[in-house]
Amino acid sequence: MATADDFKLIRDIHSTGGRRQVFGSREQKPFEDLVDLGWLKRSSVDSRATHYQITERGTSAAL
């Protein structure tokens, strides 16, 4: 179930172009929650960072 923080984060991601790069596993937790909701997808993972991209469902949630 989505929380107020989830909606705040997806709106922030949407307003800044729909993509986010995250460093460190602790910082990934809120983004992984949005992946579980179907609002974000992991577009790539490298040794230092994970890249996320907003989905259509995420765009709808952000509006």
Rank of each mutant, 00 (worst) to 15 (best):
M1R: 12
M1E: 12
M1T: 12
M1S: 11
M1C: 15
A2S: 05
A2C: 07
A2D: 03
T3P: 03
T3N: 08
T3F: 05
T3V: 05
T3D: 05
T3Q: 06
T3H: 06
A4C: 14
A4S: 10
A4V: 11
A4E: 13
A4R: 10
D5V: 07
D5M: 11
D5K: 12
D6P: 05
D6S: 08
D6H: 12
F7H: 05
F7E: 04
F7R: 05
F7N: 03
K8E: 10
K8V: 09
K8Q: 10
K8G: 06
K8F: 08
K8P: 02
K8H: 08
K8S: 08
L9N: 04
L9Q: 03
L9W: 03
L9F: 03
I10Q: 00
I10S: 00
I10Y: 00
I10G: 00
I10N: 01
I10W: 01
R11S: 07
R11T: 07
R11M: 11
D12Y: 10
D12N: 08
D12T: 07
D12R: 09
D12E: 14
I13L: 05
I13G: 00
I13F: 03
I13V: 07
I13Y: 01
I13R: 00
H14D: 03
H14Q: 09
H14G: 03
H14K: 05
S15H: 11
S15E: 12
S15L: 13
S15K: 12
S15Q: 13
S15D: 12
S15V: 10
S15G: 09
T16D: 08
T16W: 07
T16V: 06
T16N: 11
T16A: 11
T16P: 00
G17S: 06
G17V: 03
G17P: 02
G17R: 04
G18D: 03
G18H: 02
G18K: 02
G18N: 03
R19W: 14
R19P: 03
R19K: 12
R19Q: 12
R19L: 10
R19E: 13
R20A: 12
R20I: 13
R20Q: 05
Q21M: 14
Q21P: 06
Q21T: 15
Q21F: 10
Q21S: 15
V22N: 03
V22F: 04
V22I: 08
V22K: 03
F23G: 07
F23W: 09
F23H: 10
F23V: 13
G24L: 09
G24N: 13
G24D: 11
G24H: 13
G24C: 10
G24Q: 08
S25D: 14
S25Q: 13
S25N: 11
S25K: 13
S25H: 12
S25F: 09
S25P: 12
S25E: 15
S25R: 10
S25Y: 10
S25W: 11
S25G: 09
S25A: 12
R26N: 14
R26A: 15
R26P: 09
R26Y: 13
E27Y: 11
E27D: 13
E27K: 11
Q28H: 07
Q28V: 07
Q28Y: 06
K29I: 07
K29W: 05
P30T: 05
P30M: 07
P30F: 06
P30R: 10
P30N: 06
P30C: 07
F31T: 02
F31Q: 01
E32Q: 10
E32Y: 04
E32W: 05
E32D: 11
D33H: 15
D33G: 10
D33Y: 12
L34N: 01
L34E: 00
L34F: 02
L34P: 01
L34Q: 01
V35T: 04
V35C: 09
V35K: 02
V35A: 04
V35R: 03
D36N: 14
D36H: 13
D36Y: 13
D36K: 15
L37C: 03
L37N: 02
G38N: 04
G38F: 04
G38L: 04
G38C: 05
G38M: 05
G38V: 02
G38W: 03
G38Q: 05
W39T: 00
W39E: 00
W39R: 00
W39V: 00
W39I: 01
W39P: 01
W39G: 01
K41P: 00
K41Q: 12
K41I: 15
K41C: 12
K41W: 13
R42N: 04
R42E: 04
R42C: 07
R42L: 09
R42G: 04
S43K: 10
S43I: 15
S43D: 12
S44H: 15
S44Q: 13
S44W: 15
S44D: 08
S44C: 14
S44M: 13
V45A: 09
V45Y: 09
V45F: 10
V45N: 08
D46N: 11
D46H: 08
D46V: 07
D46G: 09
D46A: 07
D46L: 06
D46Q: 08
D46P: 05
S47L: 11
S47N: 11
S47T: 11
S47A: 13
S47C: 09
S47M: 10
R48L: 14
R48S: 13
R48W: 12
R48H: 14
A49G: 15
A49H: 09
A49C: 14
A49M: 12
A49L: 09
T50Q: 06
T50F: 09
T50R: 08
T50D: 03
T50G: 05
T50I: 14
H51Q: 11
H51V: 15
H51S: 13
H51G: 07
H51W: 15
H51I: 15
H51L: 15
H51T: 15
Y52G: 01
Q53R: 08
Q53W: 09
I54R: 00
I54K: 01
T55C: 02
T55D: 02
T55P: 00
T55A: 02
T55V: 02
E56N: 08
E56Q: 10
E56S: 10
E56R: 09
E56D: 12
E56F: 08
R57W: 11
R57I: 12
R57S: 13
R57Y: 09
R57N: 09
R57L: 15
G58P: 01
G58T: 00
G58F: 00
G58A: 01
G58H: 01
G58L: 00
T59F: 06
T59V: 15
T59W: 06
S60A: 15
S60I: 15
S60L: 15
S60C: 14
S60K: 14
S60E: 15
S60T: 13
A61I: 08
A61H: 04
A61V: 09
A61Q: 04
A61R: 03
A61M: 08
A62H: 02
A62T: 03
A62E: 01
A62R: 02
L63C: 08
L63H: 10
L63S: 06
L63Y: 06
